[in-house]
Each structure stands twice: as C-alpha cells, then as structure tokens.
Design a protein around this nucleic acid. Sequence first.
RNA 1: GCUCGCGUGGUGUAGCCAGGUCCAUCAUUACGGGUUUUCAUCCCGUCGACCCGGGUUCGAAUCCCGGCGCGAGCACCA
Length: 499
Amino acid sequence: MLELEAPHLLEKREVKARREGLPELKNAEKGNVVLRFAPNPNGPLSFGHARGLVINSAFRDMYDGEFILRFDDTDTKVKPPMLEAYERIQEETEWLIGRKPDRVVIASDRIETYHQHATDMLEQGFGYVCRCTADAFKEFRVSKTNCPCRSQNVQDNLVLWKRMLDRKFKPGEAVVRVKTDMKLKNPALRDWPALRIQDTTAHPHPRPEIGSNHVVWPLLDFQSAVEDHLQGVTHIVRGKDLMDSTRKQTLLYEHFGWTYPETMYWGRVKVHEWGGFSTSQMRADIEDGRYSDWDDPRLPTLAGLRQRGIQARALRSFWNELGITQKDISVPLATLYSHNTKAVDDEAPRLTFVRHAVEFQLTGDHPNQLSIPVHPNHASMGLRGWKLNDGRIWLEGEDLEKMDLRLKEFADVALHDQEARVESIERSDKRPIVHWLPASQSVSAVVLSTKDDTIVHTEGQLERHKHKAGTIVQLERVGYAIVIDNATLMLCHEESQEQ
RNA sequence: GCUCGCGUGGUGUAGCCAGGUCCAUCAUUACGGGUUUUCAUCCCGUCGACCCGGGUUCGAAUCCCGGCGCGAGCACCA
C-alpha cells in the first residue's frame, strides 16, 4: 500500500546517504544519453572551458552515452574564429578528457541546414523577417508592443527571406525573429532574433571552405537549438549565464513541436589569483608581447597550465569536486595544486636542485660514492648513484645560517670557511638535514616559476639527469617541476605566499 | 528598471525537492602531532558554518512569507 502511494517514504534513508561525485541526470537512461560542449573557436581552450569538457564527459562516462564537441563559430566579426583553434581544441580536449569526442560538429559547415529550418519557421508562421533597427526594436521590447513587421503574412516573409539570402540587405537591415510574445514577463524572451546578416566580404569566415559563402548567419540561440535537436542531445549541462537561452530555445522547440533536453547549470567561477581574462584580451596581450604565446605559463589557458605541468587528471578531479552548483564561487589555486600534487607525487622522480649554490670542500673520512633512491616510497624506481671525486660540493645559501648540518643521505658535517668537515657518517644528533650536491654531479641550471604576473628565474646547481622534456620531477625541498631541458625546469605550482 | 537564479566553516562541497536519525558530511587551507635522512608523500588531531526576521510544526539547514546580499540575462556576441 505504502509502496504504491508514496514510494519515496520508503526510499528516504537511502537517498539521504552522502552523495559522492556528480549528481544524477534527470530522465537519463544508460546508453541513451547525448551530451555536448560547444566552445567558440576564437582561441584555444581556457581553464573555464575545462569545466564544460570535464563535467559533460564525466556524465558521458557515467551513463555510457555520447559526447559531442561542437564548434559554435557563427560570428565572423565580433568574435571571429581562429583557424588554428579547430585542430588545437580537439587536441586539447583529447588530452583533458582522455579520449576523443564521440562526434565533432562544426556549425559553419551547417549553415544551409539552419537556413532550411528558418524557412520552415517562416512557412509555419512562427517567425518573421524584421526590418526595424536594433534601437527601434529595443523600444518595442521595452514597451511590450508588437513591431509592425510582426504582422506580415507568410508570403511577404518568404519574399523578404529570399532577399536576405540573395544579399539584397546590408547588415542591420533585416533579421529573422522568433514569434514568442511581446508581453512576456522576461524581456529577454520577447521575439528574440534568430538569424542576421553579416558582411562576410569585409569579415570572411577564416575557414577557407566557408569564407564569404554566406551572409545570413544564425545567432547562438537558433543555431544551438536546432543543432541540439538534430544531434539528438538529451542533456545540456552549462553555465547559468545561459539560463535565458534555455527559455528562448524552449519557446522555439514548442513551435517546432520538439522536446527540449534536460538542463543543468553551474555558476560562475573565479580563481582568486587570476583576474578577469577574456579570450580577446589574451589575444591582444599576446600580440603586444606581454605574454609569449597561448601556452605562456602565466595565462589561464589549458595550454598554459599544461606547460606548467598541471595534469589532466588533476583538472578532472578539481572540476568534478566542484560539481555543478549554481553558486558563484571563488576558488584558490591551492585547491588545484592539491589535486595536482596527488596526481603527480607517486610518479615524480626526485632530483636535487641547490639554489644560490655556495661551494664547499669536503674533508675528513667519507665514502667516495653513494646511492640515493629515485623515489623514497618506491624502491622499484631505482637508485641515483653519486660520485664524490674531488670532494667539492654545493650547499644552498639559505641553509648556511647553522654551521652543523646533516647532508641528506650522507653525513654530518661542520662548516668552517669553505670547508665541510665530515664528523660522522651515521646520524649523530638532531642537526638540520639539508640537500646538497657533489660538484662533479651537477650542472648550472635555472628554474622558472610564476609569481603574480611575472616569471621568476632562479639560478642554481642541478643534479645531472636524463629525464625527457615534459617529465614531472620533485626537486627535493623545493617543489614539483617540469623538465624543459637538461638545465631548465619550471615549477608546477606557484611559490607559496609565506615563503 | 524589468526578468531569472543563488545564499551551509577561510575556501569549496554533502544534506534541502519527499522536515526528525544533523550538537550538520567530505575535501582544502591554517595550526599541532606521528612516520620519513626532503620544508614532499602518507597518517592522526584541533580550530571553524546553516544570510537576517517572522510563520507553519511536537520538531526547520530542509516548507511558507518578507527583508538583505551576491550574480546573470534584457546584443543584429558566444
């Protein structure tokens, strides 16, 4: 009885169990879920894009569904696409989510399909060609009055539509609008624009196969709505700034008799250490030479983070942990770094880097060589063999305040002038343990790190190594770093504030 | 201004829809301790929160109303 009338009462206890990971999708059937992420290819992917990629592909995995990467490249003037970005975004997506998208769709390939749907809309009478100026229409929108173009009959609309396609209008002289209702409470929804004219002679599409082929282009809400339906998208998970888009598009779906996908939203995210970066601002700064390129480690691009050794799986766990609440949040980079440390530590070979190195001469009895583990927790990673040869060693400038030191993995020494006299091989007291390097084992090197908006160069002596570029190592007592070449590394994580 | 959305410790997050098992979860940060010949990893511990005011109820983080705060949309951008 209870089961029939109020099954939720019985499930209560189970539902209250602590949830881990992402929430369930509504009306989702395993194997029958289609998701998408649709960036504008006006630059490479940013940190923020990663959220859309990570979350949507996580749902794809959770439901054994499909994930579409779609290029929403329908503006050639305000946010012109960048030709290189198409390939680059696909490569970065694969790196981030660890697989290729199930489908890739490029909006600019499908302009004629959108035109066809616009024709359908006009024929069925729920759209019209509006020849008012943007300003004039704005007044109609504010005053909740119908624009005169709204009452044109279907024939007139189709004639005007053909003239649009035939390049008889200039940009701004005609748009296609969706008939909703000018008295709708939300002004954003009132007879919203679906397609407009772009001057693709002055502003051709950067893809050579598209170029100036079309002048009538769909706007986001129309293009996205039609494409989601055509691709069979079942769930849309996106930023809450697109909430009104959902409402606009739902009105269009009702006209067409389609069912709108389930939607979920996330709020805005700010990273405390980064200001507001926009793709176009970054592009300008790179052109001005303020940053080296899109992969400059100071930039919040995926390429920049990757350059610094931030791992894809760290970004995945970071975004998955934030989840999809609608709250606007501000996260410290320390959270991302914490995920990255977990991702990297187990596999990071240890290496010695002596900053601001000062030379000393070892004296007294001591072995002439020693072996140090590559990783203290994993003997299987092998040993590093050091030879002392002439007994010249490097110590870090900041460690020299005390005269009695323990050279890590080696011996207790007492410093005097330029001499380090070995007092004991065994550890004999509580003197501080410091890292050090035999001169014969070292090479002059530089470690780069980002600090605020600058790149700091730290000179020092680096243990000789054969790690390939891109390897993440741990510089003992310094931090995790990515190998650039034999004598250059870059710290993965910004120097901590209290240093 | 109109419309929509959101307010749980320093920062995130779970719980809220279907009120009790919540003196509120987990993570991170900070601090303290343990393991460790790294200021790493790992482990243990401590501090710390339901925006405010009413209401409904035996009982409210959870439901209702009002207030306040924050954010977004109102583009012929995405």
